[in-house]
Design a protein around this nucleic acid. Structure first.
Lengths: 338, 338
DNA sequence: CAAATTTGCGGAATCGTTTGCGTAAAAAAA
DNA sequence: TTTTTTTACGCAAACGATTCCGCAAATTTG
């Protein structure tokens, strides 16, 4: 079976491939009559241009790469939805890569994206990432990249985040105002990524004259079972906190499980507020007080910024951080004890 | 800045591009010594082969396309995770396309994937899809496709589903045994996709001598607000059901919201069981009885079947349905009233 | 030692599209 | 009417990697 490509179309029409190509791209150099003929034939033969030939020739892939730590996470899902909404409008394709919070995997992916497969990258770095040489390489190759949420301060490019410091402060303050004396901080890593949330936490404690207790700072992993154990150990101890500020949704869910299992009542025995985009947060038992990020908008914003770089030539992304506001949504998990 | 491609490598090494190409692919035609030299230089210059040139020449993209209705859905997320796990092992790339349950969008996507961009497709059809001509076209072009969950019976290819009929029966029977007399059925469309779940529902009713009441069959959409209104209307009416079997997670969540708002107690006033992969189902108030699909395994199974077709030549996918078992997990939302 | 084979590599075509350049014919300007 | 410009199209060279041939030199075989 003969493939339907430009050459074949041209032969059928008695034209040169260049003419057919131009006709399909609606070039002004081609007469309307010829355009009509070409379009008709293309439709009749169900012609679809080969994207790889086109990409090779034009040195453009019309594809953006999205690199995220994990996909089983409502925040990232909503971000992807935002990205997809814009990408679809612009007729761009979206390649998704998961690092699984693994630095080596991240390096591998980034390394193999420096070959023109994508025109630009949207990325939230893994919690393990400290060395950023692999990201520097991207910059050097001129591949535009926009970070979101988990950004890399040291790379001079556009970043989209929320007001993490402020939210960390507010969340902690909220717990204190609800009567907590021992507020714990849960997150993945102590790296730069969440450092702002933690800074807000620390400053709120300081403001209210509460000493920071290192044993109340818990760093989890991607492994739910391990997190469960870590949290269980803390909440079973004598020095257990009476309030938890979780910078990651996963840890809050694990905390709910632990509390159910060891018989701690939320919010009477312990209160909790978490960064989360869980849709069913209001339906949990008890409903979860959250810091909710505008995830969909973060995705749209990040990809829109990236498109500026893709559409204008000789435009380099500004080394600037765009901040969208998150919201503290108070629910029952931080209700004052009776 | 000169691009690092085969030609450049060849020039640096004083070899022909063909030799360099072969050396990098570890061809037996090249001496070990030359291979070493080439590899070393490639590493030194950080050479990355251009995927589009390679794809064009080899007529292979090492990419699979995943077409799903939506991504904000725990089931599809887990499926994607399963797909990614295998794709990563095989060094394949994953392009994700969302139909948003829109038939026209689905047609558009499928149409534009017939050009070699992907080597194979994994797909769960939109709830709107009735005409399957666009999928037939794929078959004709020889592009392998594997359906999962929402399958297209009429297309002769491999399909991966769960035991939908059986689960529909079990869920309905469970509600009846818990004391329900008026069991409603919630889903998206009445199309083939969920027809098996509904068939199980109908047969269970019949078995227990309960007449089927059309007003208890509710077809929702992707619009949560509309679903909320639909459900609210039903649950506020005189003829409201005392049990709900929801074939889609979204509708169950909306039902929880409705019940909270109009003051219906689950499970005393109304019981509910839903197809769902919600991780926090046990933490809801009350905890939700679910039919949980082995989503991750469905993804792995579907992509594994697809790979058989990608790796063996002249192998056409069997017109066969692979069935994985779902599990009914009983929780409080269907607890017998006191 | 001559003939046959293997080894190791280079030349050039190829995948399908795009695009710079060239050029007849038609149209406009002189 | 002649000259200039515009219109509409064809030719061929890219883009970068792969692979079919071809061919010396090295090796093995008879």
């Amino acid at each position: 079976m003969e493939p339907v490509n430009l050459k074949y179309l041209a032969k059928e029409l008695g034209l040169a491939t260049s003419t057919v190509s131009r006709a399909l791209r609606n070039s002004h150099e081609i007469s309307d009559e010829t355009k009509q003929r070409v379009m008709a034939m293309a439709k009749k033969l169900n012609y679809e241009p080969n994207p790889y030939a086109s990409s090779l020739r034009k040195q453009k892939s019309k594809t953006i790469g999205v690199i995220i730590p994990e996909i089983a996470n409502n925040f990232f899902i909503l971000v992807i939805n935002g990205i997809e909404a814009i990408a679809r409008e612009k007729n761009y394709h979206v390649l998704i890569y998961l690092t699984h919070e693994d630095y080596e995997r991240e390096k591998y992916i980034v390394q193999h994206l420096q070959n023109g497969r994508v025109d630009g990258i949207l990325m939230s770095v893994s919690s393990e990432t400290v060395n950023v040489d692999h990201l520097m390489d991207l910059q050097d190759k001129g591949l535009p990249i926009v970070f979101f949420d988990r950004v890399c301060e040291s790379i001079p490019t556009a970043k989209v985040t929320t007001d993490d410091y402020n939210c960390g402060y507010l969340a902690t303050e909220h717990l204190i105002k609800q009567g907590c004396k021992n507020v714990a901080y849960f997150s993945f890593s102590r790296q730069s990524i969440n450092s702002k949330r933690m800074a807000g936490y620390e400053d709120a404690l300081k403001k209210y004259g509460i000493p920071l207790k290192p044993h109340l700072i818990v760093s989890g992993t991607t492994n739910d079972t391990e997190n469960y154990k870590l949290i269980k150990k803390l909440l079973s101890s004598k020095q257990r906190p009476d309030g938890i500020f979780s910078a990651v949704e996963k840890m809050a869910v694990s905390t709910y499980n632990v509390c159910a299992d060891i018989g701690l009542n939320i919010p009477n025995d312990i209160k909790i507020v978490s960064f989360s985009n869980l849709e069913v947060a209001p339906l949990l038992h008890p409903s979860l007080t959250t810091i909710t990020q505008p995830a969909f908008d973060i995705g749209k914003e990040a990809v829109s910024i990236l498109f500026k770089s893709l559409e204008k030539k000789n435009y380099t992304l500004p080394d600037e951080t765009f901040i969208l506001k998150s919201a503290l949504v108070v629910r029952d998990s931080t209700k004052k004890s009776a």
